[in-house]
Design a protein around this nucleic acid. Sequence first.
DNA 1: TATACATATGAATATATAATCATACAAGAT
DNA 2: ATCTTGTATGATTATATATTCATATGTATA
Lengths: 120, 120
Amino acid sequence: MKELLCDMCEEQCEHPETVCRAKAEILPENTVQQLAETFKILGDGTRIKILHLLANREMCVCDIAETLSMGQSAISHQLRVLRSARLVKFRKDGKEVWYSLDDDHVVDLMRQGLEHISHT
Amino acid sequence: MKELLCDMCEEQCEHPETVCRAKAEILPENTVQQLAETFKILGDGTRIKILHLLANREMCVCDIAETLSMGQSAISHQLRVLRSARLVKFRKDGKEVWYSLDDDHVVDLMRQGLEHISHT
DNA sequence: TATACATATGAATATATAATCATACAAGAT
DNA sequence: ATCTTGTATGATTATATATTCATATGTATA
């Protein structure tokens, strides 16, 4: 049996040192989950399109649906997702609700994502 | 009936100009899908962890599973996803397969994602 | 008040996907 | 050749989620 470097490495494993060091550098679980959650929200075409639209102008729900040729309900559901992630904000004006970006970092993320796929 | 600015705006809509301009700036569908696909891959905790590990060192499948306390099969399945997205590469050495990052842009994306969640 | 309109929401459906299990495959080792 | 080990993969299951439909809510207007 191989000698183990620390008590985190008590499993039978071919490279205990690597595992030991890797375990020490693991990201906190809640950080991982927040990160995954953020990317998951960007991992949908409809939401990407909505965010891209809102990056240029404030829009009401009806116009977003029109622009994307999608149902009002589908857009509304997705806006709720984006709202709960605090990526968009809204203001009410009469019957209409106007949405806009709440967070410019998202645009940066999308831009970098675009760079990534262009390098592929 | 309101006057329409272009023939893209023949629907009944409260703000035809906005829709017209927004439609003109819409991202190409394949770009949207590639972008969404990239973020979707990052939108999973296990894959985030794997990428974060590989950002620091080359690792074999067994050690990744050990480090993350997960089954070998689960890791192998996820590595296949990461491989087909060309985010990781591998080399074989005897029975072992060593994985490493194939694309440094991903690390940048993750770093920026981390910044995003820290600003929240 | 009654009606029309913009938006939100719950239920239902269809689809995607992550993990597990069993097993196949490939490469030493005996 | 057989056995063991590391990895890959197909099938299955459970869970998540995107869209649609029907409807509720809220606001303006006739």
